[in-house]
Design a protein around this nucleic acid. Sequence first.
DNA 1: TATCGATGCATCGATAAACGATGCCTCATA
DNA 2: TATGAGGCATCGTTTATCGATGCATCGATA
Lengths: 109, 109
Amino acid sequence: MPKSAEFLPGTLDMLILKTLTLGPNHGYGIAQHIRRTSQDALKIGEGSLYPALQRLLINEWAIADWRSSDTGRRVRMYRITASGKKQLKQEVESFDGLLAGIARVMDAV
Amino acid sequence: MPKSAEFLPGTLDMLILKTLTLGPNHGYGIAQHIRRTSQDALKIGEGSLYPALQRLLINEWAIADWRSSDTGRRVRMYRITASGKKQLKQEVESFDGLLAGIARVMDAV
DNA sequence: TATCGATGCATCGATAAACGATGCCTCATA
DNA sequence: TATGAGGCATCGTTTATCGATGCATCGATA
């Protein structure tokens, strides 16, 4: 597993993909959205964020293009693909399954 | 994170500690209990199980002693400690917090 | 005008958890 | 007597995450 379980490892891609279903977004914006929406329960560092975004691109679960303002400020906008939506659905199903399993163990008497 | 997310990384110690609150148990028995109770959702391999048990011992969240039958069959029985129960409580709280955060993100519209 | 904090990109090395494979032993049963 | 289940454990590999670092833009404020 991860270096330290700051938050649940393995769920990052899912969270990012979910965020992208709300509309195209850029890295920093995605991280902010996750942090705010989770009410600070999930703080994703940049050292986790950008590698995760690379994974999404490599697997073609998202595409990206650069937007630059006239002043030279550049932003990389990510957009979820159809394949990404399929992947998200699978990850949610798998996550829910694991969660149900964990719940059964944790509730056992 | 882990080599592959066969099940949610970071939850293994919690699951084992929880299992031990049901009574002393040995490695194989713990794994069986988790598998059965989770209805096969969680299958923990031996390459994950024994290192996890070592962690519990090192942190003194559990203690262990060998039981051998007259024939020479040996079993290592694990027992949760008071410190282990405290740790379990903390892990459950942290887990629930993360879960709530994830839920908020995944339910966002 | 200089500085500071937020925004924004990205990489690097370290860490550690989980995994599959492997090896060895006992025991019951087919 | 071979097989499969029960039982212990280790080894090497993989991989995700993390903190630190580096660089640049921008608005506000001191």
